[in-house]
């Protein structure tokens, strides 16, 4: 098998004591564009947050390039959902992209000219350079998404993890993102994208992870796109599984013995 960019091992996560991810276990190859697909409420965003250490896991672990997240933070970049921030914040497009250059090692330090050059290059890649002085609340949804992606590019990582970058964006942004993906693939980068639209998934991605609270399947898209697996992922929740989840929440029961 090829190099592994990301491995989750038996990952289980609960929100408000209700388990939202059960034993998710997969290995994703590097150098691919990978889609994590599933219906609403299937735990896609939670999975990303668990990978990025933003939510506590009840069990299991995550390895990135075979290492712990803390050891490879410089090689991983995260693009949160566009709606997760207040775009009325007083900042310019450049200000936001420069945030991708912040490090714990340059705490107290000023942003250097080199950082500004890298940020400008990232803006160029998403076709937003001419907007660099623009206040961020004057951007369209698609432009905001591209700013977030530029910020992530400015980090210069090897693995990119993006939460729903195609939601609510215009056609120009969609095209810009897709072009960027193929360019990133050429450079050997790995991109993992949470995506909810089944229609476009086959065209966008090389690899697919089908998720619905538990992992339904993971593999090259040709293997994944068959009626049976899709039916399993989208055909509703597993009845017994969600009943047990409900029970765990009701009784406030630990999902692991220790």
């Amino acid at each position: 098998m090829k190099n592994i960019a990301l491995e989750t091992h038996n990952l289980t996560v609960s929100y408000n004591r209700r388990p939202v991810l059960w034993n998710v276990d997969f290995e994703l190859p590097s150098g691919q564009i990978i889609g994590i697909i599933g219906p609403n409420g299937s735990g896609k965003t939670t999975l990303l947050k668990a990978i990025m250490g933003l939510v506590k896991t009840s069990s299991g672990y995550v390895k990135i390039f075979d290492q712990d997240l803390d050891d490879v933070r410089d090689r991983v970049s995260y693009v949160p959902q566009r709606e997760s921030v207040d775009w009325d914040f007083p900042a310019s497009v450049m200000d936001v992209v420069l945030m991708g250059r912040y490090r714990s090692s340059n705490l107290f330090k000023k942003i250097s000219q080199k950082d500004k050059d890298i940020a400008a290059e990232a803006l160029e890649k998403v076709g937003m350079l001419e907007y660099s002085g623009r206040q961020i609340n004057q951007l369209s949804g698609g432009q905001q998404q591209r700013v977030f992606i530029a910020r992530s590019l400015a980090q210069g990582a090897d693995l990119y993890i993006m939460d729903e970058p195609f939601v609510g964006v215009d056609a120009a942004t969609e095209e810009a993102i897709l072009n960027l993906f193929s360019e990133m693939k050429k450079e050997g980068k790995t991109v993992i994208v949470v995506h909810h639209d089944l229609q476009t998934a086959k065209a966008y991605f090389d690899w697919i992870v089908l998720l619905n609270t538990r992992m339904v399947a993971a593999g090259p898209k040709e293997e994944i796109f068959n009626e049976e697996l899709l039916q399993e992922a989208y055909g509703g929740k597993l009845n017994v599984l969600s009943k047990v989840g409900e029970l765990v929440r009701e009784k406030d029961f630990p999902i692991r013995e220790k």
């Binding site: 947050k49 990025m52 250490g53 933003l54 803390d70 933070r73 410089d74 991983v76 995260y78 949160p80 997760s84 921030v85 207040d86 914040f89 900042a91 200000d95 936001v96 420069l98 945030m99 991708g100 912040y102 490090r103 714990s104 705490l107 107290f108 000023k110 942003i111 910020r151 980090q155």
Partner: peptide
Amino acid sequence: ALYKEFKLVSFNPDYAKVIGLP
């Protein structure tokens, strides 16, 4: 001294966490 970090924490704390800021 911490102007840029305070800016990021106020704008997008999750991202600050992910890039390893304290």
